[in-house]
Design a protein around this nucleic acid. Sequence first.
DNA 1: GGTGAATAGTTAAACAGTTTAACTATATGA
DNA 2: TCATATAGTTAAACTGTTTAACTATTCACC
Lengths: 153, 153
Amino acid sequence: MDKDIVQELIDRYVSVSFQVHKKAEYLIKGQIGDDLTNDQHYILRYIHDKKECTSTELADAFEVNKSAITAIINRMAERGLIQRTRDDNDRRVVYLTLTAEGNTLYETCQEKVQLLVESIITQFDEAEITAFITTYEKLAQILVNKKAEELGE
Amino acid sequence: MDKDIVQELIDRYVSVSFQVHKKAEYLIKGQIGDDLTNDQHYILRYIHDKKECTSTELADAFEVNKSAITAIINRMAERGLIQRTRDDNDRRVVYLTLTAEGNTLYETCQEKVQLLVESIITQFDEAEITAFITTYEKLAQILVNKKAEELGE
DNA sequence: GGTGAATAGTTAAACAGTTTAACTATATGA
DNA sequence: TCATATAGTTAAACTGTTTAACTATTCACC
C-alpha cells in the first residue's frame, strides 16, 4: 500500500473509532444509565451468555487485573445481581452466576440496547453492514494475535 | 431485512465492538501507558489537532460533563503539558493549548500509536480496509444524528 | 507423604475519571 | 439595570483501575 494512503487510513480510523465509541457509550448509557453502568452491563452480559464464569476469565475478557473484577463483582453481589459459589473440587475457584434478579435486570437492559443497535444497523444495506462486521471480526482476530505475539516476545 | 439476520448482526456487532475496543485500549496502553492514560492521550490529540480549544468543546467531543474535563486538565496542567489562557474579549472563556512539553510528549506517544495501528491496518487489502472505514464513518454520522434526534424530542 | 512453586481470588491504598449540585464570574438582552 | 444564560470551577461521592501484599488451595516432584 502507498505510504500516504496508509497514513490517511490510520488518521481516519483513529478518529472514527474514537468518535463511534464515545457516542455509542453515551447512547447506551442513555438507555440503561439509571440501572447499571456500561461496564456492569457488559459483565452481566458476559455471565449471562456463559451461564457461569470465573473472575480470572472476566479479567481476561475485559483486559484488566483480577482485583478490578473483584471490585465490580462486590458491588453487583451487594445489589443481589450476582452470586458467588465455590467449586467443591478446586476450592480456590469461585463461580459467578446471575441471580434471578440479575437475570431480570439484564433482560430489561439488553432489550433496550438491542432496540438501539437495531435502529442503527437497519439504516445500512444488508450487504454493507455484513461486510463491515465481517471485517470488524477479522480485526478482532488480528488484535488477539497481536497480543499473543507481544506476550510471546 | 429478515428479522433473524438482523438479530444475528446485532449480536455479532455488540460482541465484536466490545472485544475490539478492549483489546485496542490494552494495546495502546502497552505503548503509552508509562507516560499517559489513554484518555489523556486523546485529550492531547484533540488539542494538538485543533491547536486551541475550550473545556466546553472537549466535554462535547468526549460526551462527558465539563467538570470531568476540568479534573483531567488540572492534572495535565500540573504536569506542565497543557496551558490555560483567558480570552480577553469574553473573560468567561479559557483557551487550552499544549505547552512545548505537551507537544513533545504527544508526538512521542502518537508515533507509537501510529506504528501500532499501521501494523494492523496493513494486514488488510486496501479495498477491504477502505470500505470498512467508510462504513465506520457512516456509522459515526448516524450516531451523531441519533443523538441530535434524542435531544430534539 | 512433604515441601516449594503455581494458581484463584481478595484486600487495601492510591489514583483517574465520572456525575451532581452548588458556586463564581462574566456576558446578554429586554 | 436586572434577570437570565453561559463558561468554567469546586467539592463530595462514586466507579473503575493498578500495584503489592495477602490467604487459601492445588500440583509437581523428590
